[in-house]
């Protein structure tokens, strides 16, 4: 994204001459705004308005009746106080942290390993790399359903394989035991996230000049040393982007957990996202649901700002010529 556009703005985006502005400038500018108008209206109505309302809802007491009568009294910080004192709050925060950290670290390591492997050129490498994207393109509900059957205690293929290899004595209740459910969800989510890491890291690796590796090899550096002294340092900005985006996306994972466990058993896989859904859409307490959502927004925002900061320069050079 950044390389392609940074190159092109210099030659491409010469806006129409400034001198015209004085004469037909006003009308011309209006015409230009008509290009942005539909999107601006859409985002205002279906993004800015709802989200700002969500912030308000966090301070309101919503019930089913609020939808019909429109009355939702302001209750100050009550929703937040209730949240924090709810024993589920700690559980949800911990589960979210474990789910995110577990998914992210393995997705990244596996994705990086695959990216380094596919850096070599060999017959079919492009096709094979393309096939690896499949898990990322499948609807999450589909992947979730597949894993749910794979994890099945009695007939799931995972237990059958593990039993066959004599790695376990008794079948593991992957999804129905509080001990294993979160791990099972993390494993499924790792599978989904690897392709994203692979693609971004692989395109980052393409930018590392081959001459560096050759020079290092001449100096007697082994593969591991070349990886540590050349690949990792040069890949740092890309790694930062992958991890930050990965974090933002993992925080909001919903589909996979809902299909696998629905947050259970006994809240063992309840994250902030699934909890917020349960509060709003199952208990119809939209105020509390909004409050949990707002906590998520704050977390996501912190990392979003970090992300924007890291791509700030490329944005500025594209967005506002001069």
């Amino acid at each position: 994204m950044t390389t392609a556009s940074a190159k092109t703005t210099k030659t491409g985006a010469a806006p129409p001459r400034r001198g015209r502005r004085g004469i037909g400038g006003g009308r011309e500018r209006l015409v230009r705004w008509t290009f942005v108008l539909p999107m601006a209206v859409f985002l205002l109505l279906f993004f800015c308005y709802p989200v700002s309302r969500n912030l308000m809802m966090g301070f309101q007491q919503w019930t089913v009746a609020s939808f019909y009568e429109g009355g939702a009294p302001f209750v100050g910080l009550d929703n937040y106080v209730e949240l924090v004192t709810d024993p589920l709050f700690g559980t949800a925060v911990l589960n979210t942290a474990l789910f995110t950290a577990g998914s992210l670290s393995f997705q990244f390591v596996i994705g990086l390993g695959l990216a380094v492997f596919f850096q070599r050129r060999f017959p079919l490498s492009g096709v094979l790399r393309g096939l690896l994207l499949l898990p990322w393109l499948l609807p999450l509900v589909v992947s979730g359903a597949v894993f749910r059957w794979i994890y099945d205690e009695g007939f799931g293929v995972l237990n059958q394989v593990l039993l066959g290899l004599r790695l376990i004595q008794d079948p593991i209740p992957w999804l129905s035991s509080t001990q294993y459910a979160l791990t099972a969800a993390v494993i499924a989510n790792i599978w989904v996230g690897v392709p994203f890491n692979l693609v971004i890291l692989h395109s980052g690796l393409q930018a590392v000049p081959a001459s560096l590796y050759e020079a290092a090899a001449l100096d007697g550096a082994g593969p591991w040393q070349r990886f540590r002294k050349i690949t990792l340092p040069l890949l740092r900005p890309v790694i930062a982007i992958v991890l930050m985006l990965g974090l933002i996306y993992t925080l909001k994972v919903f589909d996979m957990i809902m299909v696998l466990t629905g947050g259970g058993p006994a809240n063992a896989t309840e994250t902030l996202t699934t909890w917020s859904f349960a509060l709003s859409f199952e208990e119809f307490d939209f105020g509390q649901g909004a409050a949990v959502g707002n906590v998520l927004i704050v977390i996501a925002l912190v990392f979003a700002l970090l992300y924007l900061r890291s791509i700030r320069d490329s944005l500025r050079s594209e967005g506002e010529p001069r």
């Binding site: 942005v36 601006a40 985002l43 279906f46 993004f47 800015c48 308005y49 709802p50 989200v51 309302r53 969500n54 809802m57 609020s66 939808f67 933002i248 925080l251 909001k252 919903f254 996202t273 917020s276 859904f277 709003s280 859409f281 939209f286 649901g289 909004a290 959502g293 707002n294 998520l296 927004i297 996501a300 925002l301 990392f303 979003a304 992300y307 924007l308 944005l315 500025r316 967005g319 506002e320």
Partner: peptide
């Protein structure tokens, strides 16, 4: 323009559950 691009980037970062939660009353 830059502000609009930033908004567009931010939209993608808002968790889906927040969008669902906040759009529901509007849709209703």
């Amino acid at each position: 323009t830059l502000a609009l691009v930033l908004v567009v980037l931010l939209v993608q970062m808002v968790p889906g559950i927040v969008m669902a939660n906040s759009l529901y009353p509007v849709f209703s």
